[in-house]
Design a protein around this nucleic acid. Structure first.
Length: 438
RNA sequence: GCGGCCGUAGCUCAGUGGUAGAGCGCUUGGUUGUGGUCCAAGAUGUCGUGGGUUCAAUCCCCAUCGGUCGCCCCA
């Protein structure tokens, strides 16, 4: 034993990591999500972890103060790296990417990205400082058919379905509706009002009214706004309810028509999975039309995904009008929430399917060749690392959850044998022909 | 940036003003080529860090760092 001082390892808040058996599940999820995205023709890109600070902040907004910037430990004044920072989402990097490779891309550009993002905020339940997001976006030049506003939520929903998690619902609205409505009410600072209304789930109607009063909104207007965001319908019935509130504006009418189109085109999804919810507003200020949030139908009201339409995402990067719509799965949040509830069934601790026993050092060459033979036939095979007791070698397989143990000949002329660890059965086998019984 | 709670073996935690324990895990053994159960033995801690009070502090006080939950904001 060394006398070396140890640095006691500790978790870093907001930077999650999982044991192999759980990471295996996370990887499986990513494969499934990816398969759904590709089945709709989305291609993959990966952008660097870092962007220039100027690129990240080009759009402005609240997220700015959460950006992690990059410096070298021994940075000197005027260090060039100081202009770099970690991206806080995948949308801004995509916008930059599209603008940069504009001439080489084909439009509508449909891409997905599954990468980590970083935000320097205080972690809490379902909230991390390093997290995976799985984004899909469609970007086009000048105009983007409304049809995509229905297709992307459908893709998102299908991805959730494939994961085998508790039922998810998509709550959909359209920014034009709330903006048109508030304008009709004569509210000139929709930012404060929408942010307050967005908290309805958390603070309740009374809380919202109080906060609105504090923001200088009159009681009657506040009541109307509250009635508005309470509108939730499983189909296009919201349209009548909006009309009955007696406010009208061109923007409002347009928004209602768009949302109606979207809900109508999503009516094929299972009952209860789509809700037109005018209380969905969403913080990100680049959204201009359809907005949506995904959450579990029961339990935590936290968003496990979301997205929306933006009229002009890359406007700060290129003189081209590039409207788009994107949705995103908050993979780490989704996974973390279910982990906390103990709802993730752990996978295997190791990908190994077969453990080849090493009977004695003198037989290593033969055991190694056996393992290699089985690998060429497509199995994941591990050769036990030392010639310790068979007992220990089996215990190792047991502990790692390796389903089969392969016994090469212990003496010349003996046959190979394979043992099924679950049933305990053991039988002669040939490495060239053995197959796992399903 | 702000507030509540917490910080004791690898993990989950108990405990006392006189320098520490349980369960799980880990290692070894229960002979000859076979695991999961059982039994036995064993290893492990500057009781987060710094300061103060005290004859004496893991326990009291202060600070600090870290964790966690919440606020702001957000997936």
């Amino acid at each position: 034993m060394s006398e070396q001082k140890i640095y006691k390892p500790k978790p870093i808040s907001g930077f999650p990591e999982w044991l192999p058996e759980y990471r295996a599940v996370e990887l499986e999820w990513m494969d499934k999500i990816r398969a759904v995205f590709e089945s709709y023709g989305f291609c993959n890109i990966e952008t660097p972890a870092v962007e220039e600070i100027d690129a990240l902040t080009a759009k402005g907004g609240e997220t700015e103060k959460e950006i992690y910037t990059l410096t070298r430990l021994h940075a000197e004044e005027g260090d060039k790296e100081a202009r770099l920072a970690l991206h806080f989402d995948l949308t801004v990097p995509m916008a930059r990417y599209v603008a940069q490779h504009f001439g080489a891309l084909s439009f509508p550009f449909k891409r997905y990205q599954m990468q980590k993002s970083w935000r320097g905020e205080r972690p809490q339940k379902g909230r991390y400082r390093e997290f995976y997001q799985c984004d899909i976006d469609v970007v086009n030049i000048d105009d983007l058919p409304l049809h995509f506003d229905a297709e992307l939520p459908a893709v998102l929903f299908e991805a959730y379905q494939k994961l085998g998690i508790p039922p998810v619902e998509l709550r959909i609205s359209n920014r034009k509706i709330i903006m048109g409505y508030l304008a009709g009410l004569g509210i000139n600072d929709p930012g404060v009002v929408t942010r307050t209304l967005d908290k309805l789930d958390k603070v309740g109607p009374d809380g919202v009214l109080k906060m609105l009063a504090a923001a200088g909104v009159s009681e009657t207007v506040a009541q109307k706004a509250l009635a508005f965001v309470n509108i939730k319908t499983a189909d296009s019935g919201f349209a009548e309810q909006v009309q009955s509130l007696g406010v009208s504006s061109e923007l409002l009418t347009q928004g209602v028509a768009e949302l109606k189109f979207v809900t109508d085109n999503l009516s094929h999804l299972p009952k209860g999975s789509i809700v037109a919810d005018l209380g969905i507003i969403r913080g990100l200020d680049y959204y201009t039309g359809t907005v949506l949030e995904a959450r579990f139908r029961e339990g935590d009201p936290l968003a496990i995904g979301g997205g929306g339409r933006y009229d002009d995402l890359a406007g700060s990067f290129i003189h081209q009008k590039l409207p788009g719509i994107g949705v995103s799965i908050g993979l780490t949040r989704l996974f973390g929430l279910l982990m906390d509830k103990g709802a993730i069934q752990p996978g295997s601790k190791s990908p190994t399917q077969l453990l080849v026993v090493l009977p004695e050092e003198a037989r290593r060459a033969e055991a190694s060749a056996t393992a290699q033979k089985l690998r060429t036939r497509g199995y994941n095979v591990e050769l036990y690392h030392s010639d310790t007791k068979i007992k220990k070698q089996l215990a190792y397989a047991e502990k790692k959850g390796i389903p089969y143990v392969w016994f090469p000949p212990f003496k010349d002329g003996q046959p190979h044998e394979v043992k099924n660890m679950k049933s305990g059965e053991q039988a002669q086998a040939d490495p060239a022909t053995w197959a796992e019984k399903k």
